[in-house]
Amino acid sequence: MVPLWAYLFLSAFLFAVGVVGVATRRNALVIFMSIELMLNAVNLSFVAFARFLHSLDGQVFVFFVMTVAAAEVAVGLAIIIAIFRNAETVNVDEVHLLKG
Protein backbone atom coordinates (compact mmCIF):
# COMPACT_ATOMS: atom_id res chain seq x y z
CA MET A 1 0.00 0.00 0.00
CA VAL A 2 1.29 3.45 -0.92
CA PRO A 3 1.86 5.38 2.32
CA LEU A 4 0.21 8.66 3.19
CA TRP A 5 3.37 10.73 2.95
CA ALA A 6 3.77 9.90 -0.75
CA TYR A 7 0.41 11.48 -1.48
CA LEU A 8 1.19 14.43 0.77
CA PHE A 9 4.51 15.06 -0.99
CA LEU A 10 2.81 14.99 -4.38
CA SER A 11 0.12 17.30 -3.06
CA ALA A 12 2.70 19.74 -1.70
CA PHE A 13 4.58 19.68 -5.01
CA LEU A 14 1.43 20.42 -7.00
CA PHE A 15 0.58 23.20 -4.57
CA ALA A 16 4.07 24.69 -4.97
CA VAL A 17 3.74 24.61 -8.76
CA GLY A 18 0.41 26.41 -8.41
CA VAL A 19 1.90 29.12 -6.19
CA VAL A 20 4.81 29.56 -8.62
CA GLY A 21 2.30 29.93 -11.45
CA VAL A 22 0.31 32.59 -9.62
CA ALA A 23 3.43 34.45 -8.51
CA THR A 24 5.32 34.45 -11.80
CA ARG A 25 2.90 34.21 -14.72
CA ARG A 26 1.36 37.41 -16.06
CA ASN A 27 -1.47 35.90 -18.11
CA ALA A 28 -4.70 36.10 -16.12
CA LEU A 29 -5.98 32.81 -17.59
CA VAL A 30 -2.86 30.91 -16.57
CA ILE A 31 -3.08 32.45 -13.09
CA PHE A 32 -6.61 31.09 -12.83
CA MET A 33 -5.47 27.64 -13.95
CA SER A 34 -2.75 27.75 -11.28
CA ILE A 35 -5.39 28.49 -8.66
CA GLU A 36 -7.34 25.46 -9.89
CA LEU A 37 -4.18 23.40 -9.54
CA MET A 38 -3.74 24.54 -5.93
CA LEU A 39 -7.34 23.66 -5.09
CA ASN A 40 -6.77 20.25 -6.64
CA ALA A 41 -3.61 19.70 -4.65
CA VAL A 42 -5.56 20.30 -1.47
CA ASN A 43 -8.31 17.96 -2.68
CA LEU A 44 -5.70 15.25 -3.10
CA SER A 45 -4.62 15.69 0.52
CA PHE A 46 -8.25 15.54 1.62
CA VAL A 47 -8.89 12.26 -0.18
CA ALA A 48 -5.59 10.76 1.00
CA PHE A 49 -6.34 11.65 4.63
CA ALA A 50 -9.88 10.32 4.29
CA ARG A 51 -8.52 7.02 3.00
CA PHE A 52 -5.96 6.64 5.77
CA LEU A 53 -8.37 7.68 8.54
CA HIS A 54 -11.11 5.34 7.27
CA SER A 55 -13.43 8.31 7.13
CA LEU A 56 -15.54 9.84 4.40
CA ASP A 57 -15.60 13.41 5.68
CA GLY A 58 -12.60 14.30 3.53
CA GLN A 59 -14.37 13.06 0.41
CA VAL A 60 -17.44 15.14 1.25
CA PHE A 61 -15.23 18.20 1.68
CA VAL A 62 -13.80 17.57 -1.78
CA PHE A 63 -17.33 18.00 -3.11
CA PHE A 64 -17.60 21.38 -1.44
CA VAL A 65 -14.20 22.45 -2.73
CA MET A 66 -15.25 21.44 -6.25
CA THR A 67 -18.43 23.50 -5.94
CA VAL A 68 -16.49 26.54 -4.84
CA ALA A 69 -13.94 25.99 -7.61
CA ALA A 70 -16.69 25.80 -10.22
CA ALA A 71 -18.32 28.99 -8.93
CA GLU A 72 -14.95 30.72 -8.78
CA VAL A 73 -14.11 29.77 -12.36
CA ALA A 74 -17.47 30.96 -13.69
CA VAL A 75 -17.19 34.35 -12.00
CA GLY A 76 -13.45 34.68 -12.61
CA LEU A 77 -13.70 33.99 -16.32
CA ALA A 78 -16.57 36.48 -16.56
CA ILE A 79 -14.34 39.07 -14.90
CA ILE A 80 -11.52 38.25 -17.33
CA ILE A 81 -13.92 38.71 -20.26
CA ALA A 82 -15.09 42.05 -18.85
CA ILE A 83 -11.48 43.18 -18.37
CA PHE A 84 -10.56 42.09 -21.88
CA ARG A 85 -13.51 44.05 -23.27
CA ASN A 86 -12.28 47.22 -21.56
CA ALA A 87 -8.50 46.89 -21.66
CA GLU A 88 -7.98 44.57 -24.70
CA THR A 89 -5.48 42.49 -22.73
CA VAL A 90 -5.33 39.66 -20.22
CA ASN A 91 -1.86 40.58 -19.02
CA VAL A 92 -2.27 41.47 -15.36
CA ASP A 93 0.66 43.91 -15.51
CA GLU A 94 -1.15 46.06 -18.05
CA VAL A 95 -4.44 46.13 -16.17
CA HIS A 96 -4.27 49.06 -13.79
CA LEU A 97 -7.66 50.69 -14.25
CA LEU A 98 -8.05 51.36 -10.55
CA LYS A 99 -4.66 53.00 -10.16
CA GLY A 100 -5.04 56.73 -9.49
Binding site: L8, F9, A12, F15, V17, G18, V19, V20, A23
Partner: peptide, 13 residues
Protein backbone atom coordinates in the same frame (compact mmCIF):
# COMPACT_ATOMS: atom_id res chain seq x y z
CA UNK B 1 7.95 33.75 -6.90
CA UNK B 2 9.58 30.34 -7.28
CA UNK B 3 11.08 30.60 -3.80
CA UNK B 4 7.73 31.69 -2.33
CA UNK B 5 6.01 28.69 -3.89
CA UNK B 6 8.38 26.10 -2.53
CA UNK B 7 8.69 27.79 0.87
CA UNK B 8 4.90 27.81 1.18
CA UNK B 9 4.67 24.18 0.14
CA UNK B 10 7.44 23.28 2.59
CA UNK B 11 5.59 25.11 5.36
CA UNK B 12 2.45 23.18 4.43
CA UNK B 13 4.34 19.88 4.67
Amino acid sequence: GVLAGFVLAGALL
